[in-house]
């Protein structure tokens, strides 16, 4: 597990706010805010919005893997659960369920349901440690996929639900390119800031200590299981919010969206970006979405998976910390720990 355990908490005393308010973040936010002015609708929604959504789901994985040492493959399942809640209790045109409850009821409900489901998954997964978590969460994700596919009474089986619509509030239709982009951006910024701030909170530090040495933490008297399950619940909030956005983005939810492929895709995004800092998943998401969109010109639509698979293999082999790790290696020395903990992390490999 060295890949996720290498990150020792060295700068314990810095407060979360100091991490958040940096020139780099200011510039990034400024760029993201004016992005709609220079991007076409396609780049705004299909690249920008979609990257932010996938980035949020990958962020929920990064929270678990980077700070908790639990690599989960079930994050897309959690997002999918929120999307199914939207489809079942909101409006859909599949003719099954679709209770058309107002958006301000179903949205919190969807996110809450996803987070509780996430905590339940976590409760199952934390009974074992390390590499077992991957196996168990993959089994959970696959089982959920098959279940939604063969069950028509609840999930409308293979076709799933289509015709999901984002709400119209303040005279704006929130699925229009610009409002949707800002909606995604707002969610992503809140999630990103929360993770970054939370990592320096008492809970965040305790979680990282549990990751580094669960036995010692248990001996000191911490409830290791409760901390891990709570981390799952928090990651479920982020994944759930992303799931709601995903439902509005696609306008549909079907078993195909939560199949093993998409589940692994989230892991690929997080790994390609890097698990050491919350910005990693978003970088990974942009890279993967760009490859996804433009690979067609390179290798044809058919062999896109081979390309992304090879790219992923190259990242795992060459730079275990993803693109963030590459950046760490080439960037100028003075601001070396601007993105997080110290330079001597290679020394704590286990």
């Amino acid at each position: 597990m060295s890949l996720v355990e290498t990150q020792r908490t060295e700068k314990l005393r810095g407060s979360g706010w100091r991490e958040l308010v940096t020139p780099a973040h200011g510039l990034l936010l400024l760029f993201l805010l004016v992005y709609p002015a220079m991007a076409s609708d396609f780049f705004l929604t299909q690249i920008g919005g979609y990257s932010l959504i996938l980035g949020m789901i990958a962020l929920s994985l990064m929270l678990l893997a980077g700070y908790g040492g639990m690599v989960s493959l079930a994050q897309i399942t959690i997002a999918g659960a929120a999307a199914y809640v939207i489809a079942i209790f909101g409006e859909n045109n599949s003719g099954v369920h679709g209770f058309a409850w107002p958006w301000w009821v179903i949205t919190p409900m969807a996110i809450l349901f996803a987070s509780v489901l996430s905590a339940a998954f976590g409760w199952v997964a934390v009974r074992t440690e390390g590499i077992y978590t991957i196996m168990i969460t993959l089994a959970i994700a696959t089982a959920c996929f098959y279940f939604t596919q063969q069950n028509y009474a609840l999930f409308n089986g293979f076709p799933g639900y289509s015709g999901l619509r984002a709400p119209e509030v303040f005279g704006l239709y929130w699925r229009d390119p610009v409002p949707f982009y800002y909606l995604c951006l707002a969610n992503a910024v809140v999630a990103y800031a929360a993770v970054l701030y939370g990592a320096r909170s008492t809970f965040g530090l305790t979680l990282q200590a549990v990751r580094d040495n669960p036995r010692r933490m248990r001996a000191i008297g911490y409830n290791v299981t409760a901390h891990k399950v709570f981390a799952w619940w928090l990651s479920g909030l982020i994944a759930g919010a992303a799931g709601v956005l995903l439902a509005w983005f696609n306008g549909r939810i079907s078993p195909g969206s939560i199949a093993v492929g998409p589940a692994i895709n989230i892991l690929i995004i997080a790994i390609i970006g890097g698990l050491r800092h919350p910005v990693g998943p978003f970088i990974g998401a942009v890279v993967v979405v760009l490859i996804q969109t433009f690979a067609i010109d390179l290798v044809g639509a058919e062999r896109f998976n081979t390309l992304i698979g090879l790219f992923f293999l190259a990242v795992v082999f060459l730079s275990p910390d993803g693109i963030l790790g590459l950046w760490e290696r080439v960037k100028p020395r003075p601001d070396r720990d601007a993105w997080g903990p110290g330079p001597e992390r290679s020394g704590v490999r286990e």
């Binding site: 597990m1 060295s2 890949l3 590499i131 991957i134 892991l267 081979t306 992923f312 293999l313």
Partner: peptide
């Protein structure tokens, strides 16, 4: 000795 990376590699192999 790096079991997470080994697992990630097998995921990559299975996709390809």
């Amino acid at each position: 000795g790096d079991d997470l990376r080994q697992t990630l590699v097998t995921i990559g192999i299975s996709i390809v």
